[in-house]
Every structure is written in C-alpha cells, then in structure tokens.
Design a binder for these strands. Structure first.
Lengths: 208, 208
DNA sequence: TCACAATATGACAACTGAATCAGGTTTCTT
DNA sequence: AAGAAACCTGATTCAGTTGTCATATTGTGA
C-alpha cells in the first residue's frame, strides 16, 4: 500500500488547454460510471469517451479512485447549490421542505449519473461518502434549528431527524425519479408534506 | 454473453457433507464481503476463509455473483422474519413502527455484513436489489392499508409513504447502528415516533 | 522564428483474479 | 472390502486491467 508514485496526485493543469482536457475526462468519467458503474468502467472506457489517450488521464489524476473522489466533491457542491437556490423565498421551513424535495427529485432525474456515482462511492471510499452526507447534514441541521427558534418546527433531536430526512429523500429519488417516473413529483411532494405537517397518526397532536 | 457453462448453476449438494460445505462457503462469503466489500473480496479470500479449495466453490455456485444473490435472498428472509416477530403484539400501527424500527436497528447492528452486502448488490445486480425492497414494500403497504382501515393511520399514498419509511430506516441504520453508536436506539426511536405521531410542524393538524 | 515547457500519445510490461479440470480423497452401499 | 458416487483439490490458464514511458505534438513568450 506504500507504492512509490501512486498516491502523489499529478499537478494541476497550467494552461487553459490542460484545464479543458481535465474537465473533458471528468465529464466522460461521470457518464461512463453512470452507465457502466464504477467497477465495470475501465480506464480505457473513460479515455475513449473523452477522446484522449490512456496516458493523458494520468497527467491529471492518479487513477480511477481520485476521479471518483473529485466527482463526489463536485456533486456535493452542485446539489447543495441547486437545493439552496430552490428554497429561496420559502415562507417557512415546511414550505422549504416541499421545495427542496421537489428540487432534489428534479436534480436526480436530470443527473442520474452523479446520483449513482455518489452511492457507489460508499464502497470505494467510505470517507468521501460520509463527508458528503455530513456536510449536507450540517447545513440541514442549521436550518432546522433556525426554524425551531422561529417556532415553525417542533423541538426535537435534529441530528436524528436530519438523517431520517436525508434517507427519505434518497429512497424517494431512487424509486420515483431514477427507476420509474410512474408518480408525479407533485404526488410525492404532497404525500411527504402531509407527513411533515400532520404525521402518520390519525388522531391529533398530543400537545397543542 | 452466451457462454456455454457459465450461467448453468451447479447442482445442489446431495449429501449432508455437501450441504455443510456449501453453507460454510456462504458464511465465509458473507464475512469476506462484509469486511472487504464485494469487489475487493476475491474468490481466493472466500475459499481461504471457508477452508476449502478454489474449485470447491464452483461445485455449488456458478461464480461470485450467484453467491451475492443467494446472500441477498437469505437476508430478505431473515430481516423480514426478524421484523415480523418484533411487531407481534403491537397495540397499533404507530407502536408497530416503533418496535419495527428498533428491531431493524438491532438487526443491522448485529449483522453489519449482510447490511453492506445488500447495499452493494445494488450495483452488481440491480434486479435482486429492487426485488428485496419491492417485496419488503409490498408487506409494508399491506400493513399500512390495514391500519388505515382500522383508523390508526391517516389515509394517504401508501406506496410513496412506504418508500419514504424504508429510506428513513435505511439511513438511520447506516448512521446510528453501523457507523457510530453515539445515540441510543431509544433516542432514535423516540424521535421518529414523534415524527410519525405529530409531524414536524409545530401547529396542530389541519383537519382534526 | 526559435526554443522550450506543457500537453498528449499509445504500445506494452506487469499484474490481477476468475474459472478450469485432471486427478485425489472421503463417504456410502451392498 | 470392493466399487461407485459424491466431494474436494490447487496449480494453471487466460482474459482483461492498470499504469508507464519514450516519443510526438502543441502553443507561447522572447
């Protein structure tokens, strides 16, 4: 595991051309991982899709794993930006949840590759996977705490809630955005909104 | 892809010894996949752990993938049995959810390997992965429908709810049972129970 | 225009790990 | 105890992969 040159990341591109090539490789890797999966995808599949030679890939990445890490980091930024933009102007936390869930479903639907890449990263480099969800969770917890202070949300253990909410979104995205779009996003959002507003139980709140 | 002998599953063991060996291989594969992951685990790792030769594995399985499939099927039965047993005697659906979530967390904690195997199966054979959750979901939907009829649960789109609930459990298991046991299961169950009984919102039900 | 630094090439050496199969061992039956 | 059937072995094969490197190309500043 202490090989000589393997872990040393190649230097960053120094010209615009290099930056462009690096980006092309990254995009090609995203597509290739997305369709073939991380393990089935070979370096040659990626470079062929990018239209570069095998060796070129190693000018910018130390190997397949580093590409995956880069992709996951990238995805973290993009998803968070997309969701953050989507909830601007929400009246309250509950409406923000609706907007956020819809935006997430739309994002997954439009970016199936990145979604798969993230899930597969769990088994390639668990640290980067955890980092993604922990970063996501931190932001989410801050929003819940704010909402609680404003009296929009009942007090509770927000860390647990946040993991529950992330899991919920994750599976809804998998089932209703990635696998089969046999339910409208409206329907999904409405159902979950009802859960957040009223719970599952039929009888009223225990404490008003 | 139409190779001659590859897809033909080897015959089932015909003696007790064969059955024992097959079981040993399966158990070794579970452990090996659990610690190394499906892809990092080699056939030789599995056979070494089982204390058999490489070739022996092919007496009972057509290859690595079939072992994974077998393991996922196995896990489906075991988890469902464990959860079904855990909710016997529940007063109502809400209490059943509490008991079920706790049993799930306990199961994950006690069987980290099988949990990881299931998640990785998503990228090795998506069909078997879907099958697992769809089977799970069907049973779950039936229970929700019953509970709705009994007036324990508000009417709603149970298919969507079930996927949300499965995702929620999945992430809570990952974070609080598999990764870090830094919160008691009591705390997790109580938080989710509150969500199911009262929702997230502070103000009361829209319709009493 | 020339020099030279960055970028790109692609054949290939080195390696990996799944699957095979000819032959040995154990267990059962009569 | 002999014979047969089931079971097990593990060195070897082989298809496929990664990462290397000597060489070629491109673009830029003096």
């Amino acid at each position: 595991m202490s090989s000589a040159a393997k872990d040393i990341a190649p230097s960053a591109p120094k010209t615009a051309r290099g930056a462009r090539t690096r980006a092309r490789i990254l995009k090609a890797a995203e597509d290739t991982f997305g369709t073939l999966g991380y393990h089935r995808a070979g370096i040659s599949d990626i470079t062929r899709a990018a239209g570069v030679a095998q060796g070129t890939l190693y000018c910018y990445f130390s190997g397949k794993e580093e590409i995956l890490r880069e992709l996951v980091r990238d995805m973290g930024h993009k998803v968070r930006a997309h969701l953050a933009a989507s909830v601007i102007g929400a009246r309250d936390r509950l409406q923000a949840e609706e907007l956020g869930l819809r935006a997430f479903l739309e994002y997954v639907s439009a970016n199936p590759s990145l979604y798969r890449v993230l899930q597969e990263a769990q088994f390639v480099d668990e640290a980067i996977f955890r980092e993604y969800y922990e970063a996501f969770g931190r932001g989410y917890m801050r929003m819940l705490a704010d909402a609680t202070r404003k009296g929009e949300v009942r007090p509770g253990n927000d860390e647990i809630r946040v993991w529950a909410l992330m899991g919920l979104s994750n599976f809804l995205g998998l089932r209703f955005a990635l696998w089969d779009r046999d339910r409208s996003f409206d329907e999904v959002v409405a159902t979950i909104s009802d859960l957040f507003r009223n719970g599952l139980a039929l009888d009223g709140k225990e404490k008003a």
